[in-house]
Amino acid sequence: MLEVLKQIDYSPFLLTFKLAIITTLFLFLIGLPIAYFLAYSKFRLKSAIEAAVALPLVLPPSVLGFYLLLITSKNGFLGKLWQEYFGHQLAFHFEGIVLASIIFSFPFMVHPLTAGFRSINKSLIEASYTLGKSKLETVFRVILPNMKPAILTGITLSFAHTIGEFGVVLMVGGSIEGETKVVSIAIYDAVEKIDYTTAHVYSAILFGISFFVLLVVYMLNKRFEVR
């Protein structure tokens, strides 16, 4: 049994976590200002932006993947730019699946953050303003510290969702060993090759990790609530 486990190639996991960590980091940085805008702005076309943010929730991953492939390939405008600056196209490379994951997991970061911003009592923000603090300082010293559960939810959901994604990564990244072959795709490959042992091990680990991540979120959220 141990022998079998030792023979399995675990590199897809490394790649998956690298992808999930980088994606989550970028999503958090991009998601914060967008969520802030969605929560507080009175901009008339806000609904259109909200719809665009939520789009990945309803679009089939293949549709998203198809469009992203067009944009990121050698002839796509992003792919072309990338080729000029970095010497290779975006599609079928790690950077490409990072971009795809960011777009695909977007609502999973932005929705909890928006809800978090909205949950902050308006008078807390106004109190900070009357005490002479700028909007930026208010965000970092008053708003964010009081929406920790929302931040945690956003980060974990994006992380877990990125680990679990399949369709978009397959379309944009293909299945290139060590570059774009993440665990979910590796499982698919293994099944195709009738290598059920590998598929079993990969699936069990992924199952365990997903449950553990969610467990941590719910436990931490409970602690925040108590205080």
Partner: peptide, 20 residues
């Protein structure tokens, strides 16, 4: 002039203390 630059002390009905 924005609120930050007006020298006022405001006590809100719900106190608006920072929970953190």
């Amino acid at each position: 002039i924005p609120p930050q630059k007006r020298n006022v002390g405001f006590v809100f009905q719900n106190y608006a203390l920072f929970p953190n």
